[in-house]
Design a protein around this nucleic acid. Structure first.
Length: 647
DNA sequence: ATAGGGTTAG
């Protein structure tokens, strides 16, 4: 049996146990340890049964191991049974139970044990505190931490302070965090990389990212986790340059980044739509070798499709030995957003065939693909299949997708029915989808209802005001438009300025409306002037959507200043050799005129142009703003001279 | 026996 154990042939070893007449403690001990290592509940139970059948009465040691096994396998019912049957228990027995319950989130049971136990050591306290932190109860964690400090004979360990720091970070209390920081320094717990990392994280999450960096710089034995966390915090804070710079420092430091690092950096690349940088990271990953089964692979799929390069996304995806669900979902959503809804649906059917189970996010992509393809009934079918065929619960997001699907095609009665039948309270996404549909069809009455609901949920979001104002303007209700403008002023709601950018030779160039700050501004404007003439010859007629701008912006508009996306496209054309495909991204919605203009530009200069039309979540999947483009996509694709698609 | 990092959509 020893040999079998050594070779980790667990089930054979357990079978052998059944052949032994009177097994002894060492056998049980070794077998349970092996079950524990392999997290095998099934074999563990067989060993336990054998113990009961052969009348063996375990002592502390074996019982505690058994407890640990059941807890690690998250079978708390079994663990509790063993615990209840123990004739004597030591501190360890109680502690194992507390940490078992705390880990799976049964905090009430854990606390009950904690309160009942005859005496507690610092392990009991820490296990309880970390349980609260892990399961989103930082306030309870801090309360307990305070109580613990009142006991003079209890020493905080590095585990305790790490958990307490995580709790302060979760409640965002810099004050408390600093206090613990002081405690760490006084008690000499500052010799541990994890404690430093927790400190760093606490400062970053409490908004003091520079302080976090200071801690990071002072950390002596930084490992890949400390680096990854710090890099990620920069990205979270929108300080991408510093994030990328630190990533580059990491590469120089000799510490090897891992899939956590890559996932964070690639996510930032996807967010900033900097495909060139993403490609470099991809190249680096390939050179040092990365696990194609890990989640880093899915981030690459995401990065390529978010950057508008769905072909690369597919190519990479096809090369994966066994793509995970996130990769499938990223690609399905990528197709849905890149104007290839049928490809998205086909891929979903492939996913089902592969035996993989879709999750709720996958269905968001599937239904929105139906929306883009105008396949309303098919979309509804998929929606119903979530619960029926796939046995999942429909979430508020799915309802938002269905409301989008229906209202976009003008089926408002059904959309309202769906909202009324929702088992949960309709959230902002649901109302925003409805509002988006109303905008397309000029449904003023229903738009007012949707906007009213949104004002209740998020009065600070400028997008709701702007959309409603647009709907009123289209209906000629200028009095109402003025009221909204006043409302925005009264509530100090500020509209985010529109920005477009393009990446050329790894440098990102950003443009505002009417922007003349770019070094090549003169060339850009001259070029646009020329281009406008030729566009008109080709039949382009400028038209403006009503957009709620501030006064200054409106004046600029009257001076015929160009929208940011036109500037970015023009710059990209001027700055790259003939024939180079162009990609432009925007943080806000792209107006109907720019949609049309970009397609004309694409034809005239014979370039493939991809321009993102980035509607924030508020408008569901209303990607165009031009009422005559009913089922559009996230990207405006001008295919160069070959075709000018009718819009 | 207890502590720090990541990805998909809306």
């Amino acid at each position: 049996m020893d040999v079998l154990c050594e070779q980790k042939r667990l089930s054979e070893a357990v079978e052998m146990l059944d052949l032994v007449d009177r097994p002894w403690a060492a056998m049980y001990s070794a077998l349970i340890q092996l079950c524990l290592n392999q997290r095998s509940l099934k074999e563990g139970k067989r060993v336990h049964d054998n113990m009961k059948n052969s009348g063996y009465v375990p002592g502390f040691f074996i019982s505690n191991r058994l407890l640990d096994l059941y807890c690690k396998c998250e079978s708390l019912v079994d663990a509790q049974k063993v615990f209840d049957e123990m004739r004597e228990r030591d501190l360890c027995s109680w502690n194992v139970m507390i940490s078992g319950y705390a880990k799976v989130g049964q905090l009430y049971e854990a606390r009950n044990m904690f309160d009942k136990m005859p005496e507690r050591d610092n392990f009991s306290w820490t296990a309880m505190i970390s349980g609260y932190v892990r399961h989103d109860k930082p306030k309870d964690a801090l309360e307990l931490y305070r109580a613990m400090q009142r006991h003079e004979n209890l020493q905080c360990s590095k585990f305790t302070v790490s958990s307490a720091l995580a709790a302060s970070a979760a409640v965002g209390s810099l004050h408390l965090g600093k206090e613990i920081h002081g405690h760490v320094m006084r008690t000499g717990l500052d010799s541990d990389a994890v404690v430093w990392s927790s400190l760093c994280d606490m400062y970053a999450k409490c908004g003091s990212i520079d302080e976090a960096r200071h801690i990071f710089d002072k950390t002596l034995d930084r490992d890949v986790v400390s680096w990854t966390a710090m890099i990620h915090r920069y990205f979270e804070d929108g300080r991408r340059e510093e994030g990328f710079a630190l990533f580059s420092d990491l590469l120089k430091s000799g510490i090897r980044p891992n899939e956590f690092t890559f996932a964070g950096v690639l996510h930032a690349c996807a967010d900033q739509t900097v495909e060139d940088l993403g490609k470099q990271v991809h190249g680096y990953m390939t050179r040092i070798g990365f696990d194609p089964f890990s989640f880093a692979a899915s981030t690459l799929v995401h990065m390529y499709s978010k950057c508008g390069n769905i072909d690369n996304a597919r190519k990479f995806f096809n090369g994966l030995p066994r793509p995970d669900l996130v990769s499938w979902t990223s690609l399905i959503n990528g197709y849905a957003q890149n104007g290839q809804p049928y490809e998205a649906l086909q891929l979903f059917e492939l996913l089902l065939k592969s035996g993989m189970k879709p999750d709720h996010i996958t269905f968001v992509g599937v239904i929105s693909a139906c929306t883009h393809a105008g396949l309303i009934d098919k979309g509804l079918e998929y929606f119903h299949s979530i619960k029926g065929k796939h046995g999942l619960e429909q979430t508020a997001d799915h309802y938002a997708c269905v409301v989008d699907l229906l209202s976009r095609s003008g089926r408002f009665k059904e959309a309202e029915d769906v909202i009324n039948q929702m088992p949960m309270k309709p959230d902002k996404f649901v109302w925003a989808s409805l509002l988006g549909g109303c905008r397309i069809h000029g449904n003023v009455t229903l738009a007012e209802r949707a906007a009213e609901a949104l004002f209740g949920i998020e009065p600070e979001n400028a997008a709701t005001y702007v959309t409603l104002a647009n709907i009123y303007a289209t209906a000629g209700k200028w009095g109402e438009v003025a009221k909204i403008r006043k409302n925005m002023d009264d509530r100090e709601v500020v509209k985010e300025p529109g920005l477009s950018w393009t990446e050329i030779k790894r440098k990102v160039h950003v443009f505002l409306v009417g922007d003349s700050s770019h070094p090549m501004s003169k060339e850009i404007h001259e070029f646009l002037g020329e281009l406008s003439k030729r566009m008109k010859e080709e039949g382009y007629i400028p038209h403006t959507d009503y957009v709620l701008h501030d006064v200054e912006e409106e004046q600029k508009e009257q001076n015929l200043s160009y929208h940011s996306e036109k500037l970015a496209v023009a710059f990209a054309i001027v700055a790259t050799p003939p024939g180079t495909p162009i990609k432009v991204f925007k943080n806000l919605r792209t107006c109907g005129d720019c949609h049309t203009a970009i397609k004309f530009m694409s034809k005239i200069v014979e370039r493939k142009i991809i321009a993102s039309d980035n509607v924030q979540y508020d408008f569901g999947i209303e990607k165009t703003g031009a009422t005559h483009i009913l089922f559009s996509c996230k990207f405006i694709v001008g295919r160069g001279a070959s075709a000018l698609s009718p819009t």
